[in-house]
């Protein structure tokens, strides 16, 4: 019963996602919107603005630095959680 339910919901899930596929931009399409708008600006301007040749680094640490701060907080959370859960002293 449960297996069929799982298969059914997987099929539904697959169908919904597959519905969107033909509409997504082609693989490697240089004119895809994702590669234009903001990304273009990063490629063009990041060196003058942050002085790092690696654009990924520039974006990671500069333009979207707060995502990285959040990322750190996630690791911190996970670390504390793991300690809380499996450290002997706290059990």
């Amino acid at each position: 019963m449960r297996r069929y339910l799982a298969i059914l919901s997987c099929a539904l899930f697959f169908a919904i996602l597959a519905y969107g596929v033909p509409d997504l931009p082609d693989l490697g399409d240089p004119d895809a919107p994702a590669n234009k708008h903001v990304a273009q600006r990063y490629i063009e301007g990041s060196y003058t603005e942050s002085g790092v040749p690696n654009i990924v680094t520039a974006v990671l640490a500069n333009y979207r630095g707060y995502d990285t701060l959040g990322e750190t907080a996630v690791i911190f959370t996970a670390g504390i959680t793991v300690m809380l859960l499996i450290r002997r002293k706290w059990n």
Partner: peptide, 21 residues
């Protein structure tokens, strides 16, 4: 909108841990 996802995960992880207590 991506920042929203990051914070969502911070909150969620903390919530999982707190519930497990």
């Amino acid at each position: 909108i991506f920042n929203l996802y990051v914070f969502l995960e911070i909150g969620s992880l903390a919530a999982y841990a707190l519930i497990a207590m």
